[in-house]
Design a protein around this nucleic acid. Structure first.
Length: 280
DNA sequence: TTTAGGGGTATGC
DNA sequence: GCATACCCCTAAA
């Protein structure tokens, strides 16, 4: 564009790494001003540092291009911060994504009243699972639903409040039926949801004639069973996604630990040479 | 003012 | 042509 490209030297990269190790990610201005790194980074702006760190993190995560990693992250979960980390990181100041901030972001999300689509869908699945399993003909009240879900899933502190709003929303969407203070899955929703392709009349007729008087129960039972299966499948899918996230987080922590080990070695070597090492 | 995220362009393969 | 590196712009905190 305007200025000619100025390739990053290995010294600059090292200075940046050391700066991040000292100040943490996101403290680009501090790193840039730090006299310890300034002679390497004087020609770089804080924005340059940020961009370079971003590029380094993309390579370190070997996720292909910057655009890929960024756009997918940002669009899939706009609330989650996408700050990456290539290598070193102190435990002070800013907490990087690599140390689990993405997971934390999910946790943070669950503490908000406004749920993102994924969380809302997760809660819906939990609700359907609870109602399908409890099978209370009069419906289940909020306490029963909360109790059921708490036994099976880890939930945030204000889960009850979140669940209440979720339940109200499902009632508003005509997916649940509220009778007094109890909630139950709407029959027509169950039937519609669990029979995705409408069956031809011919296939239904013989059943109708055979099960006159019992039609409601049979269909309902099948629908409830199907609803339970769907809820179960959704939950399994969610658990699998969480497991993948956790695996990624652990992998990144291992990389961080490695970097810290290298840093400790350097400090040890300096100390053993009698050099004074200043710690921030 | 600083940072994060998105986008454009140059460069190397 | 594609992936990557670098630079710039802009919104948000």
């Amino acid at each position: 564009m305007g200025n000619p490209k100025q390739k990053w030297t290995s010294e600059e990269e090292e200075a940046l790494r050391a700066g991040v190790a000292k100040h943490g990610t996101g403290k680009w201005k501090n790193i840039q001003k730090d006299p310890e790194f300034n002679h390497f980074l004087y020609s770089r702006s804080n924005i340059d540092l940020k961009d370079k760190w971003r590029n380094m993190s993309v390579s370190a995560n070997s996720q292909g291009s910057r655009e890929k990693s960024r756009t997918t992250k940002a669009k899939a979960n706009p609330d989650a911060p996408a700050t990456p980390l290539p290598n070193t990181q102190t435990s002070t100041s800013i907490t990087p994504a690599a140390n689990g901030s993405s997971a934390d972001a999910v946790m943070d999300d669950s503490s908000k009243c406004l749920l993102d689509g994924k969380t809302a869908s997760k809660y819906n699945a939990m609700i359907y699972e609870a109602l399908s399993t409890l099978k209370d003909p009069n419906g289940s009240d909020t306490s029963a639903i909360v109790g059921f879900i708490e036994q099976r899933h880890e939930v945030p502190q204000n889960f009850r409040r979140l669940l209440s709003s979720r339940l109200r929303r499902l009632v508003a969407q005509d997916k649940l039926e509220k009778v007094q203070n109890c909630y139950k899955i709407k029959r027509d929703v169950l039937v519609a949801a669990k029979t995705p392709t409408p069956k031809p009349k011919e296939t239904i007729r013989p059943r109708q004639s055979q099960t006159t008087g019992y039609l409601g129960d049979t269909v309902e039972e099948a629908a409830v069973g199907a609803a339970y299966k769907v809820a179960e499948a959704e939950n399994k899918s969610f658990v699998a996604a969480e497991a993948v996230k956790e695996a990624e987080r652990v992998s990144r922590m291992a990389e961080d630990t490695d970097s810290l080990l290298q840093l400790a070695k350097e400090i040890f070597e300096k100390c053993s040479r009698g050099e004074i090492v200043l710690m921030a």
